[in-house]
Amino acid sequence: MNLEIRDLSFKYGSRFALKDVKIEVREGEIVSLLGPNGSGKTTLLKCIGGMLRPKGTVLIDEKDLREMKQNEIAKLLGYVPQRAINVLPCSVFDAVMVGRRPYVGWRSGKKDKEVVFKILKLMGLEDMALRSFDGISGGEMQKVLIAKALAQEPEILLLDEPTSNLDLRHQLEVLKIIEEIVKGGKVSALMAMHDLNLASRFSDRIVLLKKGEVYDAGDPKSVITPENIKSVYGVEATVDDNNSRPYVIPLKAI
């Protein structure tokens, strides 16, 4: 399914957090949102996911989300926040099972359990299925949040810094899983990222935000440039070529 954002704007009080944002995410594509803190990445994902009410239009395969029922949206969009907000004293298995609610309400069946076990194995979480969700590390909790979103079997993944709280090995592991899911099925992903080099490696396209507006968009090589990094981040950097992907070496803040 294709995701399209048209002329999307959002204000916190009188301040624009997003202004006239236009983005398209095609089926089988990973698009990364880049930009400094306060550029609107998280706000944009929340607007798409329905947590905030923006002006503008969000379309899935040309269908306006405002015309869709919440349960229908939950089957299409899987949202992963930066961190767990309300941590409940339940098992990891049950935390992931919550992702099946759009299909079963509060009563799960054999198929739902099979889906959850499959995703726990995919995410390397099967050995902690019975551990308490509120007793695991921040990195493990992040992987559980991703697993919960995958349990929804969504067509579109919205990921807000999916590698936050993860060490280097698990950052690569999680992004590789996301890449395999997107490329292996009819799924697309829009993810907010801070690490320019990880975004460069795993993204088909980059959307660079500055003060709530799209500053540049395109393939990683055309967007991740010394000029853009200087203008958007206020950092001088060199950008090398690494297997046809840009690799950023920051030099100094300006």
Rank of each mutant, 00 (worst) to 15 (best):
E227L: 01
A192N: 01
L209D: 08
I156C: 07
L158V: 00
A17M: 08
A129E: 13
I178A: 06
K63W: 05
D94G: 02
D167I: 06
G78V: 05
L251G: 05
K63T: 11
F16R: 07
A217Y: 10
K11I: 05
D7M: 01
K46L: 11
M51G: 10
V214S: 09
L76Q: 14
M51S: 14
D127P: 04
K211L: 14
S39F: 12
I177W: 03
L18Y: 07
R169E: 07
M1R: 03
E153H: 01
A74N: 10
F133I: 14
K230D: 01
M141W: 10
G109W: 14
E67D: 12
G138H: 14
V87D: 13
V232W: 06
G109E: 14
E153C: 01
T42G: 07
V104E: 07
G13K: 04
S14C: 04
L198K: 00
R100F: 09
D61Y: 07
Q70W: 08
G105K: 15
F202W: 01
V248K: 04
Y79A: 05
E29P: 03
R15A: 14
A192F: 00
K211D: 13
L172N: 01
K113L: 14
G49A: 13
K41H: 06
A199V: 02
V116I: 13
V235N: 02
D127G: 09
R201C: 02
F133W: 15
G124I: 10
K211Y: 12
L125V: 11
L208K: 09
A151L: 04
R53D: 12
I206F: 02
V235E: 05
E27R: 10
S39L: 10
V31W: 02
M51Y: 15
I224W: 03
L122F: 10
I73F: 13
F16N: 12
K221W: 07
K118H: 15
F93P: 07
A151I: 03
R169K: 15
G124C: 08
G138D: 13
L172E: 03
A17Y: 05
K19N: 08
D112K: 09
L77K: 02
M68F: 10
K22F: 13
K176P: 00
V87G: 11
K11P: 09
L150Y: 03
D204F: 00
A189D: 09
S231N: 12
L125K: 09
P220V: 00
K111W: 13
P226N: 01
S203T: 02
L175H: 00
V116S: 12
R131L: 13
E4L: 04
K41Y: 03
P220H: 03
R66H: 13
K75I: 06
L18R: 04
E24G: 07
S91T: 15
D195T: 06
V92H: 05
P220R: 00
D61G: 06
